[in-house]
Amino acid sequence: MRQDIGDGRGDGMRDKPTGDAALLLLADSRLPAGGHAHSGGAEEAVRLGTITGPEDLARFLRGRLATAGLVTAALAAAACELATATADHPAGPYGQADGDGNPPDAGTGAGTGADPAHPWRRLDAEADARTASPAQREASRVQGRLLLRTARRIWPSTVLDTLARAVPEGAHHPIALGAAAASAGCDPYQAAMAAAYISVTGPATAAVRLLGLDPVTVHRLLADLAPALNDAAHAACASLIDDVVPNGPAQNGAIQNGATHDGIAQNSAIQNGAPANGAAAKARGSGWPALPGHTAPALDLLAEGHLNNPMKLFVS
């Protein structure tokens, strides 16, 4: 497993493309992890007539990517980063950042991080807080559980075992995905890309099956989304760093003043490149509260409506 943490910001070739093949395996719809049975709200949208053809579907996918897709990408990147940072230091610097963004035991790191499961529960709780719909939380946990089951046999690692133990009912899918990505050799950018990709390919495939759409037309839609997928993965990784910028966006100013105690020092450490692993880890873990939380009210309604429909073909 790699220890360095790619942030995906580079415009040129990333330095270590070792995870590329693993990324393909992870994002492939043939990965036997139960994803084929989830439509991400598309089945209910089809039932209600809000998706009827390629044009509707394109708008659906674009909106889904900009909201749920971005959020899952950021959570997956954070999970990948956590997995990478803790792989060789199970009791590393990820302590319990509090909900206001205060880093754990700033400075010493003593007294926290003893239980390697704790940061996973904390990150999983961040996913909970970004998923208001109980139907979507359940769908996410089911997918996370199935993915972890599969990933632990394909890419066994202590990190995946820790995650399974930390959230026995099933970690949220992006958390499991990020951890699996790390175990497969991917960096956070690749984890984010996989999450963003899956967030639109599942619904697209479901629409093909449910509406009998021309699969080539639908793949063209996905191809059109490629730049947006890149943007989402980049934004997801940037958010891992942005959240500790003291004078960043509005919510990071006075509102999240708690997050800025030592944000300057940590941020400069990151921007100088190649920070000590521990310093970067602490800065980023403490920034989880500010990860994207883009919500899609219509997806919430669709997810809950789907759950109530007895004649459904997809799990979600």
């Binding site: 990965l31 036997p32 992890a33 139960g34 084929h36 199935l146 599969t150 449910l210 997809f314 799990v315």
Partner: peptide
């Protein structure tokens, strides 16, 4: 009961995760 996403054979052959669960 397990939902198969319109692909019953996938759920028993190619991607058995939900059934195993």
């Amino acid at each position: 009961a397990v939902q198969t996403g319109c692909c019953p054979h996938t759920a028993i052959r190619d991607d058995i995760a939900a059934n195993l669960d």
